[in-house]
């Protein structure tokens, strides 16, 4: 179990204030709340994309608040996926490995096979369907075996049939890889089928943040 402590971030409408947030290891924790309640700000702070001071999060023996974003070894799938449009599927998935100077790409290729995107390896993201793009984003997020995975509304842009399939696939992959995950979703079905722990957030505060 990793614990986020004393996280405070000033926002224009309200302040994000998290005294303690317990994140069980190798499990999926879901964070639910209305739009603008601070969910994405929390993820961005944990990723190191927002400036907050005085907080702590010890993960695998490392004090994450002291580590620069690029060395935190975290994976993320944003709502808009943010695939690099000028890179092929393969280049997108291998990008984190390239950044780490890792020569062994076998795990990434295996993952692409598993997620059913290896046939599109030479395609650009714009040539893929919504579901395919979503799987590429997931492959990229997992290709370097991150210590923690963030999923910010990962299925919101998919139709209901594709969403169902993607959800099943994600569940299998997360169970196999046993990766600690924080999921943000509006969809009750996402939360019910994927998460083992559920917290709710409102106006920047999480009242019950222990499992």
């Amino acid at each position: 179990m990793s614990v986020v402590k004393n996280l405070k971030l000033k926002r224009s409408q309200f302040d994000l204030e998290v005294e303690e947030l317990h994140l069980p290891e190798e499990q999926v924790t879901a964070l639910v709340g209305p739009s603008g309640s601070g969910k994405s700000s929390l993820i961005r702070t944990l990723l190191g994309l927002e400036n907050a001071t005085g907080w702590s999060w010890v993960l695998k023996g490392k004090e994450m608040s002291m580590v620069p974003t690029e060395h935190r070894n975290l994976g993320v799938v944003f709502q808009s996926l943010e695939l690099f449009p000028h890179m092929t599927v393969l280049e997108n998935v291998e990008f984190p490995l390239k950044c780490r100077g890792q020569k062994d790409r076998s795990f990434a290729h295996e993952l692409m096979e598993r997620l059913g995107v290896s046939n599109f390896r030479k395609n650009l993201p714009i040539e893929l369907s919504g579901g395919e793009r979503q799987r590429v984003a997931l492959a990229r997020a997992l290709s370097f075996r991150p210590d923690f995975l963030f999923l910010d509304e990962p299925f919101s842009s998919l139709d209901s049939a594709t969403k169902e399939k993607s959800r099943e696939l994600l569940k299998e992959v997360l169970q196999d890889f046993k990766i600690s995950t924080l999921l943000i979703s509006h969809d009750k079905e996402d939360v019910q089928s994927l998460a083992t722990t559920v917290y709710s957030i409102n106006r920047g505060k999480i009242p019950q943040a222990k499992p």
Binding site: V76, E82, F84, F95, P96, C99
Partner: peptide, 19 residues
């Protein structure tokens, strides 16, 4: 946003600039 994602995945400043 793309640059932020690249940063999360470990890209250094020169890599973010050139890639």
């Amino acid at each position: 946003k793309l640059s932020e994602v690249a940063r999360v995945y470990g890209a250094s400043v020169p890599r973010r600039f050139f890639d």
